[in-house]
């Protein structure tokens, strides 16, 4: 009884300590740890907001098995840069709502933030943003990817996205003829 009580107290103390901290520790799929402002994380990510509210944040590093260290570093970097910036609707909306709010153009620093990334890093980041329910970061990264796709040919898209062409030569010729108009410049 005594031992159990002790355990319970320790648990209680740990929870209180956790609630008092103003950062949360996130752990990437390859085991690297990152600290991020709790306020920014809760404001920008619906998933992290849910985890913080539900008490499922691990003091020793909350496991984010789906996100690699490079992408998580970018996520944390984005959160920190955003920490003192415009308020987000992330806390208000409980889940990612596609195509509901009008898209606000990326701000200068957001544009610079994604411009410096390689294709692979950008793709990893958009997946991380999607997974964490970071509506604004998802907007900014999707916008960047769509800018990059504009004016590209299907061949170039296959190369960038590593997509296998599963059309036969005849099928491709047929669909190309139907969509001939779409091959003029955007």
């Amino acid at each position: 009884m005594e031992v159990d009580k002790g355990k319970g107290e320790a648990e209680e103390t740990r929870k209180v300590a956790e609630a008092d901290r103003d950062t949360v520790t996130l752990k990437s799929s390859d085991g690297k740890l990152f600290e991020v402002s709790k306020e920014a994380a809760a404001r920008l990510s619906t998933v992290l907001a849910g985890m913080i509210a539900g008490g499922s944040i691990d003091d020793n590093g909350t496991d984010l098995k789906q996100i690699g260290s490079e992408a998580l570093e970018n996520v944390v970097d984005y959160c920190n840069k955003h920490a003192n910036s415009i308020p987000s609707a992330a806390l208000i909306s409980s889940s990612i709502s596609f195509n509901t709010a009008p898209f606000k153009e990326p701000e200068e620093w957001e544009r610079k933030f994604v411009d410096r990334l390689s294709h692979d890093a950008l793709f990893d980041l958009v997946e991380a943003a999607n997974f964490l329910g970071m509506e604004r970061l998802l907007d900014v990264t999707c916008h960047k990817i769509s800018e990059m796709m504009k004016g590209k040919s299907p061949d170039q898209i296959r190369e960038v996205f590593n997509i296998k062409n599963d059309y036969t030569k005849e099928e491709l010729e047929e669909i190309r003829q139907e969509l001939a108009w779409a091959f003029y410049d955007d």
Binding site: S146, S153, R158, I175, A182, D186
Partner: peptide
């Protein structure tokens, strides 16, 4: 993306 790009990318796969 604009409609023209989306249509062109029907040829991707």
């Amino acid at each position: 993306l604009p409609a023209r790009s989306v249509c062109r990318f029907r040829c991707v796969s």
